[in-house]
């Protein structure tokens, strides 16, 4: 019984690890950074957060895709 629960727990953990991190750990890290920066900039002038948060995410996808291109060659 305990072994079955442990197995299910491991499978559940593996699923979420693969789902969230997969082969692009950098995008998972960027998401955490976006969340942290959003909280950090929430009280700053609106224009700063509105520009910085999207640009950070957009830049991260571009860099990750460029990295993927190099890796696939």
């Amino acid at each position: 019984m305990t072994a079955a629960i442990a197995r299910a727990g491991r499978a559940f953990g593996r699923f979420w690890l693969d789902f969230l991190v997969g082969d692009t750990p950098e995008l998972f890290v960027v998401t955490l950074v976006v969340v942290a920066i959003s909280f950090g900039l929430a009280s700053s002038p609106r224009a700063v957060a509105v520009v910085v948060v999207p640009l950070l995410a957009f830049g991260a996808v571009v860099m990750s895709a460029a990295r993927g291109r190099v890796r696939q060659r």
């Binding site: 959003s38 909280f39 957060a49 509105v50």
Partner: peptide, 15 residues
């Protein structure tokens, strides 16, 4: 949607 919700939940007021 992800950016929008993270920002809104964190307290950013999107224009």
């Amino acid at each position: 949607f992800g950016l929008f919700w993270v920002g809104e939940g964190a307290g950013i007021h999107w224009p």
